[in-house]
Design a protein around this nucleic acid. Structure first.
Ligand SMILES: [Mn+2]
Ligand SMILES: [Mn+2]
Ligand SMILES: [Mn+2]
Ligand SMILES: [Mn+2]
Lengths: 218, 218
DNA sequence: AAATATTTTTAGCCTTGTCTAAAAATATAT
DNA sequence: ATATATTTTTAGACAAGGCTAAAAATATTT
């Protein structure tokens, strides 16, 4: 059994490892968890005692297979709860993260399975992130940042890179939601802004936005 | 904000105070929380610093109005989650308690309100216990132990005194569920056992059972 | 190759919540 | 009323998880 704190470390390492593809530095973990590098050093030692990470002093840390399974199960719970909050309790997608951060630590295999079934076995959370299966497997879909589309290319919104409440609310205001199709009408060389068509309407999109919205090319 | 441990102490004191009607002893709390009296002494001091309990050394402890509100909100969450687990996730009534013990500590007013609404504003949990309202108010219904009914009296099952998994499973096996009507056909002086009619069928019930099942006289 | 800068670890301290053992207060029995 | 038993509090210790400051290892410049 793992403590709340241990679970949060495992999840942080899991995400950092996925993002960068390599071993994770003490500082990177400290930054992600808003804690101090010294605290991270201490915790990593405990985690390697428990065989969930491989650790060589000064050389960073990697999850073991076992550690990866535990981390994935926490991410699975996080994302299932986010679906629950949005689909069943009428939360909007910018309100769910903090509550899911708490709910992901509830320990009950039956609860997770029943919730999964109650929600209709969703494959992705409200932000377009994939939900790991029971064994920790992730179905990665092919997605590109909107900013990488060329003029006249089209794509369907499938996810966000920045999932801050501010960005999500901005998308709400512009009525840009997952599942909608986007056509790139124009790319401005000057500021890399885009002119797109969505819902049959024309919209101007800054590069900052286009860099934080994922589409599946179509 | 209160820690997990503080919340559990508040809830324990709340229940003990309701049960006995008076101030609560250190030992009683220790027993309920399966901890040591010395730990309870320590914690009570902290809680009285935070103005949720009134404490006089050696004289036991009582919740303040503020403390009562917090405790009731935790009980409210516990019972709402139990309803959720039974009604929506197909848990049986003997499986929900331990999961609800975890879920009751999730902090999100919106979550509680939406859950309440999603469940159709239930007034009682799966064990027949009343769900405190937002202000901590409890609607107490008139209920009696089945063992107090006289021959030929009838009542509707409305709750359990013992909510152990063993007792609940036993009731399941006998198909005694909340909402069903019971008629007392016979009372045996010898062993205080009862002969009852339920679902049109005759059933023999030991005194131990009759002492742990609440009915509303009808 | 040194010198300097950055990252990581260690050492020592703090808080929370727990425990055991001993002391103090209260309750019960003679 | 005293002696005995029980309950409650205090004193001191410990583990988890965090922090700061200093030391050690690694990386980057010159
Ligand atoms: Mn999230
Ligand atoms: Mn998400
Ligand atoms: Mn319960
Ligand atoms: Mn209950």
């Amino acid at each position: 059994m793992f403590t709340l704190s241990e679970e949060n470390y495992l999840k942080a390492i899991y995400h950092l490892e996925l993002d960068t593809g390599k071993g994770v530095s003490t500082n990177a973990i400290a930054k992600k968890l808003e804690t101090k590098a010294s605290s991270v050093s201490d915790m990593i030692k405990k985690l390697s005692e428990k065989d969930v990470v491989v650790y060589k002093k000064y050389k960073g840390v990697t999850l073991t297979g076992f550690g990866k399974k535990i981390a994935a199960s926490i991410v699975r719970k996080h994302r299932l709860w986010e679906v629950f909050l949005v689909d069943k309790l009428n939360f909007s997608w910018d309100e769910v993260h903090d509550v899911a951060e708490q709910l992901e630590h509830i320990k009950s295999p039956k609860l997770v399975n029943q919730l999964d079934s109650f929600l209709g076995f969703p494959s992705h959370d409200p932000h377009g992130d994939p939900i790991p299966d029971k064994d920790g497997g992730l179905k990665i879909i092919e997605k590109s940042l909107l900013s990488t589309l060329e003029k006249n290319e089209t794509g369907v919104c499938v996810g966000v890179n920045d999932s801050s409440s501010e960005f999500l609310k901005f998308l709400d205001k512009k009525e840009i939601t997952l599942g909608k199709q986007i056509i790139v009408l124009e790319k401005e060389d000057f500021d890399d802004s885009l002119s797109i068509q969505i819902d049959g309407k024309k919209l101007s999109i800054s590069n900052k936005i286009a860099n934080n919205l994922y589409v599946q090319k179509s």
